[in-house]
Design a protein around this nucleic acid. Structure first.
Length: 296
DNA sequence: TACCCGTGGCT
DNA sequence: TAGCCAAGGGT
């Protein structure tokens, strides 16, 4: 059952042993963290690196230790506390999710996968992550790290496909240990391997516990030969303008005169489009044509 | 499906 | 330096 290359089961023991010895100490992994802490961390970690999440995470849980504490606040306070983590719609969704938890689940983060998936801002990955990390359930937890580890170790290519696919989910399911607690440890361990060793740019294969079984290494570590990845341009985009507008509103105690927002960006047409977009998203509340604030 | 959505560190 | 990349979700 073990030992042959490309055999998922052969990966389990070395990866689990490696994790036991090398896992980072992170607050949401503490035994007493609780499901709400795991959920907050997962929202913040959607596209934002661990090191930048840590301070915001600590402040958030100190201020709102339970879902009902956040649900009682206006959504604008969540946006303000989100600080500069990026993608502030996540703050709005986390606030809405907290309200849904209070209304539908008596204030407790549900342990049911379908119930989690029905919460705002919770997609396939986040639902599986909360169910696995917080409740020890058996789910394929497929993020960009896991997709990369499986692409290399089992498929033998340098990088996974650009977008997540159903094939990724099937591959992750096939690699999942049958036993529930082992599956939960495998989920976090394989993700950590992707974050620390099997990294996107300069993988540390010399330190990898499964290098002797890795299909990509065994194939001679061939370079990526798929379609070119679309770079994310940022300078001059609406996203940059939105970020500037929201930064002004976050820094202000209350409402902000439109004149202060107008100073954020030179191009009036783009500025108005960005502001309208923020209002449409519920991130900004217009009090009049001349005054704006974070949503109350 | 492809695109939109922030921010900043790293190589 | 300028891209590249980061525990995705919604539409």
């Amino acid at each position: 059952m073990s030992g042959s290359p490309h055999s998922p089961a052969a990966l389990h023991a070395p990866v689990l042993e490696w994790y036991a010895a090398n896992a980072r100490v992170l607050p949401w992994r503490e035994p007493d963290a609780g499901a709400w802490a795991v959920m907050v961390s997962e929202f913040m970690l959607q596209q934002t690196p661990v090191n930048r999440v840590l301070p915001a995470y600590r402040a958030w849980l100190e201020r709102w230790p339970k879902p009902i504490d956040l649900a009682a606040e206006p959504p604008g306070e969540a946006v303000r506390a989100w600080d500069r983590l990026g993608y502030p719609r996540r703050a709005l969704r986390l606030h809405a999710a907290a309200q849904a938890i209070v209304e539908r689940h008596s204030g407790e983060v549900p342990d049911d996968h379908e119930a989690l998936l029905a919460l705002p801002g919770v997609g396939t990955y986040t639902a599986a992550a909360i169910a696995s990390f917080a409740f020890g359930q058996r789910h394929a937890v497929v993020d960009t790290n896991v997709r990369r580890v499986l692409a290399r170790a089992l498929t033998g290519v340098a990088q996974p496909t650009i977008s997540p696919t159903a094939a990724d989910q099937r591959l992750a399911m096939s690699a999942l240990p049958a036993d529930e607690p082992t599956a939960a440890r495998w989920a976090v361990a394989s993700m950590e391997l992707g974050a620390l060793i099997c990294t996107a740019r300069a993988p540390r294969c010399d330190d990898c516990p499964i290098r002797s079984q890795c299909a990509w290494v065994l194939a001679g570590s061939p370079p990526y030969d798929g379609p070119p990845r679309r770079g994310q341009t940022y300078e001059g985009t609406d996203r940059q303008v939105r970020g500037r507008l929201l930064a002004v509103l976050r820094a202000a105690a209350g409402a902000v005169p439109k004149k202060a927002l107008d100073a954020c960006w030179h191009d009036a047409a783009q500025r108005e489009r960005a502001l309208d977009g923020l209002v449409a998203d519920g991130l900004v509340e217009p009090l009049s044509r001349a005054r704006y604030r974070l949503p109350g």
